[in-house]
Amino acid sequence: MAIATPQQDTPPSELAIEARGLVKRFDATLAVDGVDLTVRRGSITGILGPNGAGKTTTLRMLLGIIDPDEGTRRVLGHENPRDVARLIGYLPEERGLYPAMKAVEAIAFMGALRGLPLAEGRKRGRALLEDHGLGEAADRQIRHLSKGMAQIVQLLGTLVHDPQLVILDEPFSGLDAINQGKLEVLIRGLADRGVTVIFSTHVIAHAERLCESIAIIAGGRVPFAGRVDEARDRIPAQVRLETSAHDGPWRAALPDTARQVGQFWFFPLPETGVEPLLRALIDGEAGIQSLSIERAGLHDAFVAIAGEAAAARLVTSDAGEEG
């Protein structure tokens, strides 16, 4: 089943990616089942889903590494993504650098694969390493770098040829908190320069902090694609209420779904808004100690959209990804 995205009426000239009805089978396994996706130029879009959901297969179809069995895709205005390969930077989930190669040479080599002359790649590589606090590592072999440093080197090799579109497959995997933060700053910097960034992740925190738009993928399908705030708006805001009175007329202001946890009450914000609720609580002598309105987080939205089973295989915070 193909799910249309809210961005489907965007003029083609403003789109970096436009995919319709992508299907991919591997023998008897249906890995991707009718994925629709549009990505605006200059935006940061997250492909959010658990491991095995079809994220990597979808990205590889967008890149032209594999072709879909059904469906169409346009990347930077071209039906064949391989025609614009030099305008794309790609960081695969499976990292791979030659251990004996120096860091600056590894960056230059990756740039050369996208058409950048080696001499220019070395020059840019040294500058990028300096900019990211790794200048002293430029002439060190990859085998002598930490895992996090090597991962940053590979990322810089993805960017050295100044791509218009950057696709990162699980880029935060294996990075400690410090390097995760550096990567987030780098991604925001790319978008500020007008580069389109797409990254896949199963860590909700990264998508919530970085993304303007997300595509939720589960079981090879995309049940939601659109802005993060639109996903969160699928769930009504929740009221968190603390009162000094334990009972009284004010209880009639609470919906039947209200639940009490300790001294707090939790319930969805009524459609009439907070002001009528406040009046009813005051008139009913609730003795309001505190009242806050808490908007649903992206994890709650994911549960509502993709289901508990898919959400159970996600990581909700960065801590689960440190390694």
Rank of each mutant, 00 (worst) to 15 (best):
A4H: 11
D9R: 15
T10F: 03
E18N: 10
A19V: 08
G21Q: 03
F26R: 05
R40N: 09
T45N: 07
L48I: 06
P50M: 07
N51F: 01
K55E: 11
L62E: 00
L63R: 09
G64W: 13
I65E: 01
E70M: 15
G71S: 09
T72M: 11
V75S: 12
L76D: 05
R86S: 10
I88M: 06
Y90R: 00
P92H: 05
Y98N: 06
A100V: 15
A103N: 04
A103T: 06
A103H: 04
A106H: 08
M110H: 13
G111D: 03
P117G: 00
L118A: 00
G121S: 01
G121M: 08
R122A: 00
R124K: 07
E130H: 11
Q141D: 06
I142C: 09
I152V: 13
L159Q: 02
L159W: 08
L165A: 08
I167S: 06
L168M: 03
D169E: 04
I178D: 01
G181M: 08
L186D: 00
R188P: 10
G189Q: 02
H202E: 08
I204A: 00
R209T: 04
C211H: 09
G219N: 06
R221M: 04
F224P: 02
F224M: 01
Q238N: 13
Q238E: 14
Q238Y: 09
S244Y: 03
H246E: 13
V261C: 12
V261G: 10
W265F: 12
W265N: 07
F267Y: 05
F267D: 13
P268D: 00
G273Y: 06
G273H: 09
R279L: 13
G287M: 04
S290A: 11
L291Q: 06
H299C: 09
H299Y: 15
A306T: 03
G307Y: 13
G307N: 13
A309H: 15
R313F: 05
S317N: 14
G320Y: 13
